[in-house]
Nucleic acid binder design. Sequence first.
DNA 1: GATGAATGAGGATTCATTCAT
DNA 2: TATGAATGAATCCTCATTCAT
Lengths: 213, 213, 213, 213
Amino acid sequence: MPKETFFNLPEAKRQRLIDLALAEFAENDYDTASISRLVAQAGIAKGSFYQYFENKEDLYTYLLALGAEAKAQFLGSNPPDPAMGTFAYIRWLSAAGIQFELARPQLSQIGYRAVRGGALPAALQEQARTGAAVFFRQLVEQGQARGDIAPEIDADLAAFLFNVIFTELGGYLLNRLPDEVGKDDGRSLFETPEAARLFDQVLHILEAGMGTT
Amino acid sequence: MPKETFFNLPEAKRQRLIDLALAEFAENDYDTASISRLVAQAGIAKGSFYQYFENKEDLYTYLLALGAEAKAQFLGSNPPDPAMGTFAYIRWLSAAGIQFELARPQLSQIGYRAVRGGALPAALQEQARTGAAVFFRQLVEQGQARGDIAPEIDADLAAFLFNVIFTELGGYLLNRLPDEVGKDDGRSLFETPEAARLFDQVLHILEAGMGTT
Amino acid sequence: MPKETFFNLPEAKRQRLIDLALAEFAENDYDTASISRLVAQAGIAKGSFYQYFENKEDLYTYLLALGAEAKAQFLGSNPPDPAMGTFAYIRWLSAAGIQFELARPQLSQIGYRAVRGGALPAALQEQARTGAAVFFRQLVEQGQARGDIAPEIDADLAAFLFNVIFTELGGYLLNRLPDEVGKDDGRSLFETPEAARLFDQVLHILEAGMGTT
Amino acid sequence: MPKETFFNLPEAKRQRLIDLALAEFAENDYDTASISRLVAQAGIAKGSFYQYFENKEDLYTYLLALGAEAKAQFLGSNPPDPAMGTFAYIRWLSAAGIQFELARPQLSQIGYRAVRGGALPAALQEQARTGAAVFFRQLVEQGQARGDIAPEIDADLAAFLFNVIFTELGGYLLNRLPDEVGKDDGRSLFETPEAARLFDQVLHILEAGMGTT
DNA sequence: GATGAATGAGGATTCATTCAT
DNA sequence: TATGAATGAATCCTCATTCAT
């Protein structure tokens, strides 16, 4: 956790620091990201950094937490109709996730790195990985309770599939359809028929494969 | 490519060096892996390393090539009945891939890093990534030609799904069933009913989702 | 340019560092000069050096600039009668240059290396070389305009001769008359009749060879 | 001196080695020239080098000696009319020297470096420098004995002037008139009127400055 | 006579972290 | 609270030279 001194900082300075740190850790993995570069860009003293944060890892975990929080807020601010079916919900969730990725690419990238795991403080990786897994696990179990997902499907396995597919799908679509995404407006991705078609196809495959009908 | 001097080394020493290098690059990503650490462990002089290899990248690409070759040999030594259907083939292929991962975990880990990859010599990453993608793409197209995969499925998208699932599935199973895998004998994984069950379930999901029936 | 940290150093320490660096680069050419040796002699940490200077080249260019500035100041502090003829001016200029060489042998030596130069950061060499050439060229053209130098003399060629002769003359005299130079007082060289005689002879040769009478 | 083993080498191999060494030491100064690079290019074993030569310095001094011998032979093979005057002789000599520089640029470059002196084994530099100085000294004294050079001229100083001018003049002309020199045929330089004009002007300046008339 | 593997000190540079001011 | 100088281990890599085969 950042020290008190960090939160006592003037809002503007604190935000600026966060933005620069996000940029640094989004472009480099944990080892390659450099505190030296960061403070140089921020124009603050080396020592000041260590008055805000315990160390490099402290900053990193803070950024991860920020990302998780931002994503939760992003998803929570525009919640779907609670009555929708499991696959419709997953569709909404994934679309929202991808839009988050487009809206806050740095936060996404850092979270992605944490999961995919280059070199980083062992403990963190485990933690980052489990969050999403647990969530999808619950989702699948609810789906089975509702009768949307066949009961003989192994819930943990299905959660793994959802997790891995939707973790990578955003990047895949971005890569395949680079021209259909306006840099400034992440929303546009799903307004293109091609992206929507591909995305829906994945859902249909999973639904046909796991569903009860 | 390693220099001649490397291949002129006594078999035992050369193998020892390879093993230590595999360990180093399996545990660390490219940037974090340390030549200094390697030579210290190997008990050779720093300069000696540079008589065997051009530089760090040279060693790294060599290890990657070793991995590719070992995997090709592994798969080629036990080829399936060529008449089998697409999903049966994918099943065989993935099972073999996972067994390779269990038999040669370090080689697999290095290859995995190259694809998922944190910081590494740029050019290499692209190369590592495309190989599997192209392969799966062809597989899907053949499957559609044979009538195993529904023609309306987007071939590239399906290839993406296969690729991402089977890249991660080995690690997932290993994680979930650690006790069922004897370190010395990778073959054991698929001889446990639990692993086979999970693996088949994934296949059935995909087949039901993409198939023509 | 050295970093701010360098200029914030206590005067004594900064000067000590400069002196040691001058010694290192005066005795060795760019490639051979060693930052490691420098910091060892200075008794500072390796890392500290890189908090003062960007890199080796940064230090080197700084020393060159110091030399240029010192020489300019040296010449400017005792300017000649502006009405004097071209050869008299050259005499004054060269004498002053040689005295500078005697007063600040390390600075001179570094500048000399930059012009004569073995291996050094390429860009710098060109730059160092042209400065003097341009200056002498102007001098010759002015001399021709004043009627001091015969108009049929090729100006560029004459500039080359002045340049090469006066670049080397100081070293020659120093070598030939080592005992007449007190280390502490560069001024002494031209107060010895022998040095003055030799120096004037060179001037007379050039004047008789290029002059208009 | 190279060891016997070197002279026992098959002519072709020995010559090849010399050529590559010349290239290495012509392009790099003493410190930067690399024995490692040399043996790699030559395709011989590192150890073999040390059976031919005592060490790096041994090779270097040998190359210098080769250069001196080659130049002597070059000059001696086409001697001028012994009755010509001192300045005519110097003209011939310098022209021949420049032509040698064009014909054997590597040998010249190595000799030039030795005189101009980047970092190289102290003892050698002195030696390289004195050779030419002594020669020009004798030339000047003979010139004075013949009445070609004014007796009041300091012989050693005049020798210095000749030496420094003609050491640098070749490079200057080459630089100024790059298009007039065919790479394959050094002779062409003095067949261009412009080069001859400049060269003669230098001579006339020196003759007018030092002569007896 | 030839080989070429082994050596290890040395090169420049970057880094996260500490601590006195 | 903020500073920023100091640290020194760590990085990859090159070098001339030796010596057992």
